[in-house]
Design a protein around this nucleic acid. Structure first.
Lengths: 248, 248
DNA sequence: CGTACTTTTGAATGGCTTCAAGCAGGGTGG
DNA sequence: CCACCCTGCTTGAAGCCATTCAAAAGTACG
């Protein structure tokens, strides 16, 4: 919380916490200065909708702190999460005027925004931005495809294990911790949000988490705090090979 | 066949059938000339594997004619198709040396290839290529996310209807036909390949196709030739709203 | 301390899979 | 020319995993 407030005041790109990972990662100092002129921060509270699918989207931006979700909803209410947005992730699509998905703040959220037209203009004149955006988009495409395997072919138990291992891996990379055998983290999602991510019902999510706990694959402290005694075991349960993805 | 042979001889980018849709779409004449110097054609027979997941990938390229699939396989053999590659689609990822997925030719296939290093070099000096690749990657990301909804939340019947409507839509756009009420096309995939795309078994695919036929949603002539008497009806069965995606 | 929300747990149902057999079409060799 | 086989496809029956419906327990907050 305190952290987010201080970030919201940040105007200096050089000292920005996502400086080295966001869409501006490859920019030189002079390019950053020009970005600073057109950027502005926006804050959202947990639960707030950032953009509705189909709405006019007149800005793009990066998540500075907090977590947001990208979801798609059918007319009858079935919803599928299609992306999890973490600090440094990019929101919006240059060249498209309306949003394709709902973007919802899962936690309190700070975004670094640019109005679309100036940003697109900047992109044309700054190859470093377009290059980085391409790289990030390719990474997202890989992640989406990996998730297609989870959704299409994995069992409920494997799905839960896959989600936990992804969160664990990311958490350790964000916090620059070593991926040792023992890992601890907080679930940033409710059971329902996990269900929407995994294509399950929240009851099944709850049951499978209980089962993994009972089998000693994870240790729960409260509803949200998770410890993984043996990461290899968790990856096995996810159906990946034991060192899958750790060294790529 | 004859068509492919003639394409395989094509050296002239200006008259290339995918000229206006592929990664080179935005290139000027002089840029095309430079591409022509480094490009080469490769042909694959139906069933042949273009690249194995994990293999060194020393080229990238565009599908000129034919169809290929992108698949992911788990150790126990479960497989999920994560992409369908059609003429003008791009294969390979600049900045990555090994393939992330199996690429398999579903029909006879002709590709326009570039060795990776010269292509990456060219990309740096030709913003038109990078711009177009970004656009194409963003489109693919949207397609992958749309598919996540299909895999995660749709019933078997809806999945089949979704696949059929996507093939129908693409077929009509490739052949520059009007999307009228009546549509006819050939399925480019076996029941097993459809199952791998949809996260189903081939038996379920077969059953649901039979059910849609029985209910008059589609008309079958042989195993592969499909007629859609009422596209709106098919889209309804897919769980999309009746005009979904036709006018985007 | 009560209300609202999230999570867990139980029991019954059902949709998809699994296992199994039979069918259809196309090519091959005797 | 036809028996044979191979591959792709269909259909049937039984079983299982995840869902659905229902209720209660745990948690957060005024």
């Amino acid at each position: 919380m305190l952290n987010e407030r201080s970030l919201a005041i940040t105007q200096d790109c050089e000292s920005c916490p996502i400086r080295h990972r966001a869409v501006c990662a490859r920019c030189e100092s002079d390019e950053l200065l020009r970005l600073e002129e057109i950027k502005y921060y926006r804050k959202f509270e947990a639960g707030q909708t950032v953009i509705w699918s189909g709405d006019r989207m007149d800005f793009v931006g990066s998540v500075v702190s907090g977590i947001a979700t990208l979801t798609q909803t059918m007319e009858d209410g079935r919803t599928q999460m299609v992306g999890l947005l973490l600090p440094s992730d990019f929101v919006g699509r240059p060249g498209r005027s309306s949003a394709a998905y709902d973007v919802v703040a899962t936690t309190d959220l700070v975004m670094c925004c640019f109005r679309k037209a100036p940003f697109e203009d900047m992109m044309k004149r700054t190859p470093h931005i377009a290059q980085r955006l391409l790289e990030m988009t390719l990474d997202e495409l890989d992640a989406a495809r990996e998730w297609m395997l989870v959704l299409g072919r994995k069992t409920a138990r494997e799905k839960i294990a896959s989600l936990l291992s992804i969160i664990a891996r990311r958490d350790s990379s964000v916090n620059m911790r070593q991926v040792t055998d023992q890992l601890t983290f907080d679930l940033p999602l409710t059971r329902e949000a996990m269900a929407d991510y995994l294509g399950l019902t929240l009851e099944t999510v709850s049951r499978q988490i209980s089962a993994l706990r009972k089998d000693g694959v994870i240790v729960l402290d409260g509803k949200r705090h998770v410890t993984v005694p043996d990461m290899g075991r968790l990856l096995e349960e996810a159906g990946d090979d034991a060192d899958g993805g750790l060294f790529d």
